[in-house]
Structures are given as C-alpha cells and as structure tokens.
C-alpha cells in the first residue's frame, strides 16, 4: 500500500468524460499525524481471528502474514482494534514525539 506511486491516471472509467473520473488517490493524505495513542501488536497473544482488520475504520491493518501488521502512516489511533481484540493482543500506548 505504501509503496504505490501517486501518479495521475484515469482508470476504470474509459467511456466516461475525463472530468467525471478521479485523478488521484487519497493515499497522499497521511492520516497517521492525527494520532494521539498508537496500537502495538503483541504477536505471542494473537490467535489469528482478524477482528482488528475487520473493524479497522482506516483499513490500515495488514493480515497477509501470521499476525496483524499496522500501517502507522494511516492509523488514526481510534483504538477500535485494541478494544475488539478478544485476547488483548493489541495495546494502546501514548504517542511520544
């Protein structure tokens, strides 16, 4: 997700007038700067239920591996993942500047 280039292109809307198509992705907006508290994953406690991924409102949790990996570029620190985790494998910690 992070490695993508933010090039301007019109995709998936070839037969629409250009003004109706969008020209860029909101990935340019790094919402990680909104965060006050940061989620930390404890892989030992994770049971692989992927509830954190399912309920993440910023879609910044990657579950392709064995345990969730959080993309701190976009995490807004809402704390839903830590609250929903059944095994308390995610803890929220104060963001340190």
């Amino acid at each position: 997700m992070m490695a993508e280039k933010y090039e301007i292109k019109i995709s998936g809307a070839k037969d629409m007038p250009p003004m109706a198509a969008s020209l860029g992705k909101m990935l340019v907006n790094k919402t990680g700067s909104w965060r006050n508290i940061r989620p930390l994953v404890i892989p030992e406690k994770c049971n692989g239920c992927s509830l954190c991924w399912k309920f993440c409102p910023d879609f910044c949790i990657n579950i392709d591996g064995d345990y969730p990996i959080i993309n701190y570029d976009y995490c807004k620190g809402c704390g839903v993942c830590a609250h929903e985790c059944p095994t308390e494998a995610i803890v929220m910690e104060e963001e340190i500047k």
């Binding site: 997700m1 992705k25 909101m26 990935l27 340019v28 907006n29 790094k30 919402t31 909104w34 892989p43 030992e44 994770c46 692989g48 239920c49 992927s50 991924w53 399912k54 409102p57 910023d58 879609f59 910044c60 579950i63 392709d64 591996g65 064995d66 345990y67 969730p68 993309n71 570029d73 976009y74 807004k76 620190g77 809402c78 704390g79 839903v80």
Partner: peptide
C-alpha cells in the same frame, strides 16, 4: 516471528479480503 506462529498458522477472514476503499480518507477517528 514468534516460534508458536511459525509454519502454517494464517489469519482467517469471514468477509472478502478485497479492499476498494483507500486509507487516507477524511473520516473522524472510529
């Protein structure tokens, strides 16, 4: 990776994995 997770264990999902919404949107927290 921690030892008990090495080999075989993967994260299960009950809903499709495909994402059609990008991160970086302007919604409030939560």
């Amino acid at each position: 990776r921690p030892s008990h997770l090495v080999g075989g264990k993967t994260m299960k999902t009950t809903i499709p994995k495909e994402e059609l919404v990008y991160s970086g949107h302007l919604a409030c927290q939560g």
